[in-house]
């Protein structure tokens, strides 16, 4: 018999205390225990990127982390990042460019894109398509062929680099 262990973390700004089985992945914990279903599970081996969340502000694969490991840490899923202006701009651009079809890959891609866009401030040189593809190298999309996704992120990145203190 393996006893559940306590874990005490911050998820999308709220304090969470639970007992978890050691083998429970962070991804299953977020989906099943907390109902945060923007975290998608494709491969469970770090290949597809559908499960990417921010851990202390940095993107990680929630399938390659145990819930019990995150004690004392801060986890943000797409649900917790959705209020930002940057997400609104990305959603609009994804919609405009048809950058999603089934949408399975989209939450992981948006979490990665949000982190990537932090480097885009007014006056900076807009990132190349190559740099965008590089940032997304760990995200699979089986529907779109990536071109539209890169277009959408490029559009938001260019706007972010061009505008003066724009919202």
């Amino acid at each position: 018999m393996i006893a559940p262990q306590p874990v005490n973390l911050t998820v999308n700004g709220a304090r969470v205390r639970r007992f978890v089985e050691p083998r429970l992945s962070l991804a299953d914990f977020l989906r099943q225990d907390l109902g945060l279903t923007a975290v998608h599970l494709g491969c469970e081996v770090g290949a597809c990127g559908a499960c990417i969340v921010n851990l202390d502000g940095q993107p990680v694969h929630a399938c390659l982390m145990l819930a019990v490991q995150t004690d004392g840490m801060r986890v943000d899923t797409l649900e917790g990042l959705s209020d930002s202006e940057a997400v609104a701009a990305l959603q609009k651009a994804f919609h405009a460019r048809n950058a999603l079809q089934c949408g399975f890959c989209t939450p992981g891609i948006l979490v990665v894109a949000l982190g990537f866009l932090k480097g885009c401030r007014p006056g900076e040189t807009a990132p190349s398509r190559e740099a965008i593809r590089d940032a997304l190298s760990g995200n699979y999309c089986r529907c779109t062929g990536y071109e539209a996704i890169v277009d959408a992120i490029e559009r938001v990145a260019k706007a972010a680099c061009a505008t003066q203190e724009a919202a």
Binding site: P59, V60, M65, V112, G138
Partner: peptide, 9 residues
């Protein structure tokens, strides 16, 4: 080595 999210851990 791998992808950015894997390099973070």
């Amino acid at each position: 080595m791998a992808h950015p999210a894997i390099r973070n851990l």
